[in-house]
């Protein structure tokens, strides 16, 4: 009876994985289709990859997605970390207020944040495009960075900072040499979250952009109205890049630890 239960749960998890991975496999499979159809495989070809690299709209969208994600991550990581540090030394009320305001973009549906920004930018007569999209991305990335840095700050021993200043550090030196190295894991994971949030964003970008500036998500959305198999090629490329990245992130540290353990033994 126990055995049958184990087989049952294995089948359940197998079906679940099929459900999760079928669309991904489907996308990869049809990116090599020689026809336009998304349902009939006519034969193997790389034509959609060729089309993708000659499609200026697509290349531009990829370019904007990466540039915005990189700048938004850099800015939000720096600003978020600095603010979180300042906040940890600030009055409780200020802490509470900033926390509550940060919760707006985190808890509100994206579409509400998006229309708010749309009205703000229009009210300021800002021309919608690259800059508005970048500002919006910085706006929703900072709370994630602060959320991942703040717990690290809380667990910090304040005596170490005082010791550093007693030994003659200026506050700035103490900040860079004492605080920042200790909260680095939080900063790095915050930056990672910010990058993926920016890279994957659709709703907010869709509302605040204009003048032909679009990212990958917007491109997929607008292209879905007429079948364009180049999307599959682009998606496959993204899937491969993310797989390699995740593999590196997950495997390299364990390999590193293993080799360290070995060298420690030897």
């Amino acid at each position: 009876m126990k055995k049958s239960r184990r087989i049952g749960s294995k089948i359940f998890m197998g079906v679940l994985m099929l459900f999760f991975y079928a669309p991904i496999i489907y996308t990869i499979f049809f990116s090599f289709n020689s026809g336009r159809s998304l349902t009939h495989f006519d034969g193997f070809s790389l034509q959609w990859y060729g089309k993708m690299f000659s499609d200026s709209n697509m290349l531009q969208a990829v370019f904007y997605t990466i540039v915005i994600a990189v700048i938004a991550t850099a800015v939000s990581t720096i600003v978020g970390t600095i603010t979180a540090i300042g906040l940890s030394k600030s009055h409780r009320i200020l802490k509470l207020i900033v926390e509550q305001v940060n919760n707006f973009p985190l808890m509100n549906p994206d579409i509400v944040t998006a229309i708010g920004l749309l009205m703000l930018f229009s009210g300021l007569h800002a021309s919608k495009g690259f800059v508005t999209m970048l500002l919006a991305h910085i706006m929703f990335c900072i709370p994630y960075v602060m959320l991942s840095v703040t717990p690290k700050l809380k667990s910090l021993d304040s005596n170490i900072l005082e010791a550093a200043m007693d030994l003659g550090c200026t506050p700035m030196q103490a900040l860079i040499k004492v605080i920042v190295p200790q909260i680095m894991p939080g900063v790095v994971s915050g930056a990672l979250i910010a990058f993926t949030m920016s890279f994957d964003d659709f709703v907010i970008s869709y509302f605040v952009t204009g003048n032909g500036v679009s990212n990958i998500s917007i491109l997929v959305y607008t292209m879905s109205k007429r079948v364009n198999p180049s999307i599959n090629a682009l998606s496959t490329l993204i899937i491969v890049i993310i797989s390699v990245f995740l593999l590196l992130v997950n495997i390299v540290p364990s390999l590193y630890n293993k080799s360290k353990a070995k060298s420690a033994k030897g």
Binding site: M17, F20, Y21, A22, P23, I24, Y26, T27, F30, L38, T39, H40, T196, F199, D200, F202, I216, S217, V220, Y221, S224, I231, S235, I238, I239, I242, S243, L246, N250
Partner: peptide, 26 residues
Amino acid sequence: LLITFPTWINMLVRTYAWVGILQDDG
């Protein structure tokens, strides 16, 4: 890791794949 991996791929890209899978001749 198996559960989180798909969430790393763009939501629109994954949703778009279902359009092909669910079509009348899909």
